[in-house]
């Protein structure tokens, strides 16, 4: 399996413990939500075949203006937002997600985050990252992710 074509898009660098401050903000990430993201996120990435995520007519019948992003995709986007920032030497150990309003094709999703807690626990350096993602009509989701890295690493 060759993944050379992917290599330039991967992040091999990790944030150093000493370079992180409590309260520090993560750079925002903007993602244009289109039907491809909604449908491929549901059907291909997460094998969620519930028709509200791929069939606009079905979504409309159930009172929604269009297909909308499924929870597994939202969770995956938020997890990647955090771990793309900290780099591969950190492990995501918890992610708590609260859902607000659905996000539809044609909207822009802007994810922001901040280091809400920096601490040491059981031989690990740990960070709690508070995050939220805003779509056109308000907040799509918010939550907290915990990442950690062995102190000896």
């Amino acid at each position: 399996m060759s993944t050379d074509w992917m290599t330039p898009h991967l992040n091999y660098d990790s944030m150093a413990w000493d370079a992180i401050d409590e309260g520090e903000e993560l750079p925002p990430v903007v993602r244009e939500v289109d039907a491809t993201l909604v449908v491929v996120g549901a059907v291909a990435a997460s094998r969620d075949f519930y028709p509200v995520h791929h069939d606009k007519a079905f979504a409309e019948q159930s009172g929604s203006p269009d297909v909308f992003v499924n929870i597994l995709t939202t969770n995956g986007l938020m997890a990647a937002y955090v771990t793309n920032w900290c780099g591969p030497d950190w492990d995501l150990v918890a992610i708590d997600l609260r859902l607000k309003i659905p996000v539809f094709p044609g909207q822009t999703l802007t994810t922001k985050g901040a280091v809400t807690r920096k601490y040491e626990q059981d031989g690990y350096h740990a960070l709690d990252i508070g995050f939220s993602a805003d779509a056109d009509y308000g907040t799509h989701c918010s939550g907290t992710a915990t990442i950690r890295r062995a102190e000896s690493a």
């Binding site: 291909a44 995709t73 995956g76 990647a80 591969p88």
Partner: peptide, 28 residues
């Protein structure tokens, strides 16, 4: 879909040398 840049998921060489010892799946 997630545009996840972690080489532990898609770079077999990096993953093999890492603490994971090979490709792993995202926890999320």
């Amino acid at each position: 879909v997630m545009q996840d840049e972690n080489p532990a998921y898609t770079d077999p060489d990096w993953a093999a040398r890492s603490r994971h010892g090979g490709i792993v799946a995202p926890g999320a």
